[in-house]
Nucleic acid binder design. Structure first.
Lengths: 222, 222
DNA sequence: TAATTGCGTACTGTATGCAGTATGCCACTA
DNA sequence: TAGTGGCATACTGCATACAGTACGCAATTA
């Protein structure tokens, strides 16, 4: 009898709901700043309020929601402030993970190059963003520090909301695919420092257009 | 009528419970690996299971608990693996926050020096750890990146469990107080790079004794 | 004696009901 | 007409009840 079950036990409803709600936020079904009506939403999803509230609580801790006592749950706003704050952190997390990973394996190099082609060919922004995230995860796949990887994935999710919300209004960002090539090139040459520096640049390549869009948005409200 | 209430609304029971449970974990009232019996614990705390489960869910996202479907909530184990993984991350987060903070203000320097004296004079490990955390927070108090500060506080909490559990068995760690002096000295001389480097060292000063203790512990089990 | 099956117990997961609070609307007043 | 107060409504916060599942123990068999 294994202490840790070999097959992953099926998720309970709360955990499934957390995944669904996360997707609904990405898709824009739950808009930024929107208030959650627990009764309506639970009925719409065909569950009761208890597991829904637990799922919302999980998202609060992920910073995707906020909970104001006696007023309820709200989808977190997209703010210039948060967006700007995320960058310097991600810019140190990813290179650190790359250093810990070391030079990629032969198979990993192949995957990185394959993904890079797929990114270039992707037509819609949603798959492009997914593939870009997959590329960055593959880049640090040799990193055994699961806490660091978990952090990076959380930051990916937080960035993704901005990228997708932007894309809904502005179609596509021409992500700097060339930098991925440069990073691979540097790693093949065993130039870790150079790879990290290019990676740091690559991580901020989307910044300006989205910042400009956020400012416009702000102006419309104010 | 302000949109955002000026006085902070009182916390609801779930949020209060999360704070209590966090303290109970620090105090060792809830031991590492311990299974939570929701009925017993909710009765002991004088609340019902619903807010307790919401509080536990919050702690799951903080990595203080884990939730195995249909088996319940467990206090996270203290493992060599987690402890080692935390270090490289904290070692890049704190210096980055210090850089973003810039050179401390006059008042901040004073606070840092006052705290340093208090750390030296502290007799028990619990206040020593608290004061050390306060010192490190003061060091980065000029940092306006709240997400980064929040991350650092989360890592402090995770380290604290190890420090306190160690202290319960081994009394006191002689924390390298001298490094704090060196950091202050470097900052007064406007030597940010040197300060960051010393900070990075200081953050790992507790590592070895606690690692050795974790290994012993592991041996006893295996 | 060791292994295995079946059952009872105890616990988690979810639904639901009730109490208390926030909020918006309407009437009333200046 | 603008501003204020009170009331109705709808929503959240919490307790509780019930259903389904995991787990340990005993009985049974080899």
């Amino acid at each position: 009898m294994p202490l840790i079950p070999t097959t992953k036990p099926r998720l309970n409803i709360s955990q499934q709901l957390a995944n669904s709600l996360r997707d609904m936020i990405f898709e824009g079904d739950l808009g930024a700043g929107e208030r959650i009506n627990e009764v309506h939403l639970s009925e719409a999803l065909g569950v009761s309020r208890t597991p829904l509230r637990e799922a919302l609580t999980l998202l609060v801790a992920e910073e995707a929601m906020i909970n104001i006592p006696r007023r309820g749950f709200f989808v977190r706003e997209l703010t210039r402030r948060e967006f700007e704050d995320l960058y310097p952190i991600r810019s140190i997390l990813d290179p650190e993970a790359l250093r810990l990973s070391g030079i990629p394996s032969v198979g990993s190099f192949a995957t990185l190059e394959r993904l890079n082609v797929e990114i270039r060919d992707a037509t819609d922004m949603k798959t492009r963003v997914s593939l870009d995230d997959a590329w960055h995860l593959e880049l640090v796949s040799g990193c055994e520090n699961q806490i660091l990887i978990g952090l990076i994935m959380n930051f990916m999710n937080r960035f993704r909301r901005y990228g997708l919300a932007f894309a809904r209004e502005r179609k596509v960002i021409e992500t700097a695919n060339q930098e991925h090539v440069e990073i691979i090139h540097a790693l093949r040459a065993d130039e870790m420092d150079e790879a990290c520096e290019t990676l740091r640049k690559n991580l901020t390549s989307n910044k300006d257009p989205i910042l400009a869009w956020l400012d416009e948005r702000q102006d419309l409200e104010g």
